[in-house]
Simulated scan of single mutants.
Amino acid sequence: MIYFEKRLLEYDAAPRELITRDKQQLVVDNFSRWRIVDPLKFYQSVTTINGAQSRLDDIIYSNLRENIGHSSLNDVVSGDRAALMERVTSDSNLKAEAYGVEVVDVRIKRADLPAKNEQNVFNRMRTERERQAKKFRAEGEEEARRIRSQAEKESQILLAEAAREAQVLRGQAEAAATTIFAAAYNRDPEFYRFMRTLEAYRKTIANRTTLVLDPDAEFFQLLQSSK
């Protein structure tokens, strides 16, 4: 009588170099979990656990190579690894059924760049980051220039509108003053002339101002007439 394991078994494969869709070499270290589901088929096809693991090694490696070959480096190392391993597990399980085996799970323990490629990849990544940074700086400077130009344009418009409004207000004030002066003149011309003369004195004669004029000058006519 021959007994077979019912427990979940593990197989840790040796690391292998695989190539991604973007032609990057990766050293992939993977393991799988599997179990015997059909003892008769298992015995007739592979006989022993070692025989099964040898077949699984070929099956899983083939599916890893195919799926990683259709994936980018970013997908393998970070982005879409979970979906990638689900496909590898499903594809491997379909082929393993012929040996009375179920592949439960395939996982990547490590996916590293070969030592000879690490520096080249790092340099490419740094160059790409620098290119993107330069692009973002240029876009930022262009946006800053656009904002400054727009602000200056709006400032000039506001200043022009303010100057125009001030001119209108001055015109209105001068017109109102002229109207008031005209009304005052029409009401009492002598008093109007008197007030205008006083205003002229106020503007002309400041503190400590000395004027040398003819006593008969018309400018002092009001003062002379008040004597």
Rank of each mutant, 00 (worst) to 15 (best):
I2F: 10
Y3A: 10
F4S: 03
F4G: 02
E5F: 07
E5V: 03
K6E: 13
K6V: 03
K6N: 13
Y11E: 13
A14D: 00
P15E: 10
E17C: 09
I19E: 15
T20C: 02
D22S: 14
K23P: 09
K23G: 03
Q24G: 08
Q25A: 12
Q25F: 05
V27D: 01
V27M: 07
V28W: 02
N30F: 02
R35W: 03
P39C: 04
K41M: 01
F42K: 04
F42C: 08
F42P: 03
Y43I: 10
V46K: 04
I49A: 05
A52C: 11
R55S: 13
I59Y: 10
Y61L: 00
L64D: 07
L64T: 01
L64H: 10
I68Y: 13
H70A: 14
S71Q: 04
S71I: 05
V76M: 10
S78M: 06
D80S: 06
D80W: 04
D80I: 10
A83Y: 08
L84N: 06
M85P: 02
E86L: 00
E86D: 04
R87D: 01
V88K: 05
V88Q: 01
S92V: 09
N93W: 06
Y99N: 04
G100F: 09
V101P: 01
V101C: 03
V103R: 00
V106H: 05
R107L: 11
R107P: 07
K109F: 10
K109E: 13
R110Q: 15
D112H: 13
A115M: 12
K116M: 05
N117P: 00
N120R: 06
N120Y: 01
F122I: 02
F122H: 07
F122G: 07
N123A: 02
M125D: 00
E128L: 11
R129V: 01
R129F: 04
R131A: 14
K134C: 02
R137T: 08
A138V: 05
G140N: 06
G140T: 09
E141F: 10
E142S: 13
R145H: 06
S149C: 07
A151H: 03
E154D: 02
S155E: 12
L158A: 15
L159G: 08
E161G: 09
E161A: 11
A166N: 05
G171N: 14
A175M: 14
A175H: 15
A176K: 14
T179M: 14
T179Y: 05
T179W: 02
F181K: 12
F181S: 13
F181W: 10
A183N: 07
A184M: 12
Y185F: 13
N186G: 04
P189Q: 06
P189F: 05
E190H: 01
F191W: 11
R193D: 06
R193P: 07
R193G: 08
F194I: 06
M195S: 04
L198Y: 00
A200W: 04
Y201S: 09
Y201Q: 10
K203P: 08
T204Y: 04
T204E: 13
N207E: 15
N207T: 15
N207S: 13
R208W: 08
R208K: 15
T210K: 11
V212S: 09
V212M: 10
D214E: 14
D216A: 13
D216Q: 14
E218P: 07
F220I: 15
L222K: 08
Q224H: 06
